[in-house]
Computed example of a mutant assay.
Amino acid sequence: MTVDIASPDLPLLTYASGVATIRLNRPAFSNWVRDEDLRWMLSTFLVLDADPSVKVVVLTANTAGQGRPVFCGGYEITEANPRADDALFTSTAAALAQMRPVTLCALSGSVYGPALDLVLACDLRVAASGTAIHLPMEMSPLHSDAFYARTVRHLGIDGAKRAFLSGSAITTEELKARGVFEGVVRPDAFEGYVGTLARQIAALEPCTTQSIKQALDTTAFS
């Protein structure tokens, strides 16, 4: 597989034994995603989707050097991009949700604002303990209808209202109890747990996992 890389700050792509790992790579800036990251991710999703050797896609983040690990601080809005491209972010989450391989979000730090949409768009989610979800109200203009729908589907209407309207953080331990996360693991065991789970999924018969995934998605969205 070939993916063009134009900047050292773009996400990193690694591949081994059927598992492709995409790692957000701006730890000094809380891994805020920019338009160039989203375009890179969209093109990478297409490459991975078309490669039959890819059975699992892991979405994670580089949190090296961070005092409090942050998986993604949100969608960066700058003076050069004051409104941001809402449609681009929404399209990226939609493309992730529709991928052929099984997608696994390895939440290595807390997540803020619309970045939660990328987390919920994955098929499975694992978090490092001590991480949380934050949905500050001032970021609400970037929340698409699809994001609201995905949040309600995973958190339930009461959980979604609490997340959006109270401004209070929700711990991943609480979300695991709701079934949103497959596991919440100590930071020192996190990488090993994610690797084992990804390899376990990759070892399954791909035609079977893809047909089950499609059937479940059809049921959930019907």
Rank of each mutant, 00 (worst) to 15 (best):
G109W: 10
L96K: 05
L155C: 11
G167N: 07
G179K: 01
L96C: 05
G167S: 06
D117H: 15
R100C: 06
A121Y: 00
I157D: 04
F190N: 05
C105G: 08
G113V: 02
L142I: 04
G130Q: 10
S168A: 07
V184I: 05
L142S: 13
P101I: 00
V119L: 10
L118M: 13
R162Y: 13
A94H: 01
G195M: 11
P141C: 06
L120S: 14
A189C: 10
T103D: 08
T196L: 04
L120H: 01
P136K: 12
G156T: 05
A95H: 01
L104S: 11
C122G: 14
P187V: 03
L104F: 06
H143K: 12
C122N: 12
R162V: 15
P114E: 02
V152I: 09
R162N: 07
G113D: 09
L175V: 11
A146G: 10
G159N: 01
S129L: 00
Y112D: 06
G183V: 02
S108V: 02
L96M: 10
V180W: 02
A95K: 05
R100L: 08
C105K: 03
Y148A: 14
T103V: 13
C105Y: 00
G109A: 10
G130P: 12
G113M: 00
G159M: 07
T172K: 01
M137A: 14
T171Y: 05
T103E: 03
S110H: 07
T172R: 11
E182I: 08
L135W: 03
G195S: 11
G183M: 04
V102E: 06
L165C: 08
A94W: 01
R178T: 13
L96R: 04
M137G: 07
V111P: 08
C122W: 00
V126M: 13
L116R: 04
R150Q: 15
V185I: 10
G195Q: 11
V111R: 00
H154F: 02
P141H: 09
G179T: 09
R186Q: 13
D123Y: 01
K161Y: 01
T172C: 14
I157S: 12
T131N: 15
R153D: 10
A97K: 13
H154V: 11
V102K: 06
A97E: 08
T92A: 09
H154N: 15
L165P: 01
G156F: 06
L175T: 02
V111S: 09
A127C: 08
L142W: 01
L118A: 05
A146S: 14
Y148N: 14
A115F: 00
H134G: 05
A106I: 09
S110N: 10
T151I: 12
A149M: 04
E174P: 13
S110V: 00
L96W: 05
H134A: 09
V111Q: 14
C105P: 05
H154E: 11
D145H: 03
H154Y: 04
V152G: 08
R186F: 01
